[in-house]
Design a protein around this nucleic acid. Structure first.
Length: 614
DNA sequence: GGGCAGCGCG
């Protein structure tokens, strides 16, 4: 190498060339090499190159390196400030990003539209958003489309969807991104239909707009519409990306659409390995579609698993009641250098709850607080209440709920009520419902559970009163809906449904099932029939057409002998249907796997994996 | 010399 510097310098790459090299560096090693080269040539503080270095370090996640360079910069201008704010914002260091913005204002450097849209990215609260909105006015940036898009985003995510829409409507030029931003706002806020209206009105859509809409359906209880929209996307010849797949897989898991989920798996190419995001989505889908072995295969194939991947697999074991496997994976986490998260604890605690492991649960619950420094959330309490309730320790469960410093939600109260139902404890059930009514927290599930508690104890007065309360408050029972997938198509059934094309055959099968059940001396478990029917025969008739039984009958006539039957129900399975599933599994020799709102039931040869507690 | 939107786990 020549040691004659002046000569060498003229033959070295020009700054423009170096700038390009920085932009093109794909990893930290690369970048550091170029940085070293700049240092050797005394070009480190050459403004353009310095700026580019900072940006590249930040985008590779090395914000500290950017900060070090920033601190060496003499009189950083608006470009440098914007870069350092952005570096922190994209790496989730929101508070520090805001601090740099404040520092910039103190230095009396005026932010431009780039700065403002960047700092808006780091703004987490509605209050900060409003303050920045004022700044936008002050600096005359409020009509800039990037600033405005960011503002729409902030307001929509902060829950002020009306204001977000007002900003959107007042924009002179709205583009694909603005629309997508507004649609995202609606979707995240649960206004899926408004989102769809905007989506349908768009002149052009890209993969992101489709993804947002599909995910909006998937995350707001409308998984079937998510799958339908995905098919339309494919028809429109748009190439789905990873985000599309993650959203659709979530939807497949929710409805138990194993066939569709497998199709996506094959579209992704049945690779031996997936990244964490796609891998997690596949694990979740397979777990919820009762294919735990496939979930595990995907899990094993993921290299560099993160905690989220573990959470998904542990959660899979948990809903199937495989507590030992869940615990085993949980114990493996520290061994591979992963820290359990709050979600991990929800999964292991629910696994323990399903298996009735009381001392283990208390141990985990306390360790979570004391050793891992994770504050229990309402969901963690929910697991404990489920567990204690199932074990009949109702007062202990009630005391736990009352002792909480955070507010209990309707799911937690529901867990307590379910325990009252299981142990026929009317007194506590009434107390809880009274409590909920006073605070306006009662919803349809509350009433149904209370009614079930009365019915279980044969208290028909109580049932009638509950019915009257429901009517008075205008609450309607969420209709039970069961689905079963046959030939990649999800068939849905409501109670007493006659809309299915094969309805006649289904009802014939139900008659046949009745005969089997009679022969096996099955006594209908009418205790939880909601209505006060005087006639026992009438109660039986209403039980016979429960949605899960229709789904079972349809599966029996339309699937091959010996194959596993998989049913998904949106509510908790009713006791009579549960008993029937077990019996039918024995009579037909088929495995019946049913997922209800809470967990999986694997019925084999007359026994259920839940041990008859759910 | 710079900027905006989408994904997972109970």
């Amino acid at each position: 190498m020549s040691s004659v510097r002046p000569v060498a310098q003229t033959t070295h790459p020009e700054p423009e060339k170096l700038a390009l090299l920085i932009d093109q560096s794909k990893n930290i090693k690369h970048l550091k090499q170029i940085h070293a080269l700049l240092l050797r040539r005394g070009l480190e503080s050459y403004p353009v190159l310095n700026l580019k270095l900072q940006r590249s370090y930040s985008s590779l996640g090395y914000v500290q390196n950017s900060v070090a360079l920033f601190n060496l910069t003499q009189n950083p201008d608006v470009f440098f400030y914007t870069a350092i704010i952005r570096g922190h914002a994209i790496n989730g260091l929101h508070e520090r990003a805001l601090n740099f913005y404040v520092q910039m204002l103190i230095e009396e450097i005026e932010p431009n539209a780039f700065t403002l849209s960047t700092v808006l990215k780091a703004c987490c609260t509605l209050e900060t958003g409003k303050a920045l909105h004022c700044h936008a006015h002050k600096f005359g940036l409020v009509s800039d489309s990037y600033v405005r898009t960011a503002l729409i985003d902030i307001y929509a995510r902060g829950g002020d969807i009306v204001l977000a829409r007002r900003l959107f409507d007042s924009m002179v030029e709205r583009n694909l991104v603005t629309f997508t931003s507004m649609i995202t706002g609606y979707a995240k806020n649960g206004n899926v239909d408004e989102a769809r209206e905007l989506f349908d009105g768009m002149e052009e859509r890209d993969v992101v707009s489709w993804n947002v809409m599909i995910d909006g359906y998937a995350q707001h209880g409308r998984p079937n519409e998510a799958i339908v929209l995905f098919r339309q996307m494919m028809k429109a010849k748009l190439k789905p990306d990873e985000a599309t797949m993650v959203a659709v897989l979530s939807a497949c898991g929710q409805v138990g659409a194993l066939g569709s989920g497998q199709w996506i798996h094959s579209y992704l190419g049945y690779r031996a390995t997936f990244n964490c995001r796609v891998g997690t989505a596949l694990i979740d889908m397979y777990s919820k579609c009762a294919s735990l072995e496939d979930a595990r295969k995907v899990f094993d194939g993921i290299k560099d698993k993160d905690a989220v991947v573990y959470n998904a697999m542990i959660g899979g074991y948990a809903i199937h009641g495989f507590s030992q496997d869940a615990m085993k994976l949980f114990k493996e986490m520290p061994e591979v250098g992963l820290h359990p998260t709050d979600i991990t604890f929800i999964s292991v605690l629910s696994a323990c709850a399903h298996a009735g492991l009381i001392s283990e649960s208390w141990g985990l619950f306390n360790a979570m607080k004391d050793e891992y420094g994770i504050q229990p959330k309402v969901e963690h309490y929910g697991c404990m209440v489920n567990l204690l309730g199932r074990a009949g320790r109702l007062e202990e469960a009630y005391e736990l709920v009352k002792s909480m410093s955070i507010g209990a939600d309707s799911v937690l109260w529901g867990a307590l009520l379910n325990a009252c139902r299981l142990h026929k404890n009317i007194a506590l059930g009434e107390k809880v419902v009274q409590f909920l009514l006073q605070r306006g927290l009662a919803h349809s599930g509350t009433y149904v559970l209370l009614s079930n508690i009365y019915a279980a104890a044969g208290n028909w007065d109580g049932v009638a009163r509950t019915r009257a309360m429901m009517k008075q408050s205008g609450v309607q029972k969420e209709p039970g809906c069961s689905s079963v997938e046959v030939n990649n198509k999800v068939h849905e059934f409501l109670a007493g449904d006659t809309k299915h094309p094969k309805s006649k055959d289904i009802y014939a099968m139900l008659e046949e099932m009745s005969k089997w059940l009679k022969a096996h001396r099955h006594a209908s478990q009418t205790e939880e029939v909601l209505h006060n029917m005087d006639d026992e025969a009438e109660k039986e008739r209403s039980l016979k057409v429960h949605s899960e039984k229709l789904a079972l009958a349809f599966a029996l006539i339309s699937t091959k002998r010996g194959t596993t039957i998989k049913i998904v129900k949106n509510l908790r399975v009713c006791p009579d249907c549960h008993a029937v599933m077990k019996l039918v599994s024995k009579i037909t020799g088929r495995k019946i796997v049913m997922r209800d709102r809470n967990r999986f039931h694997h019925c084999v040869d007359g026994m259920c994996s839940c041990g008859d507690y759910w």
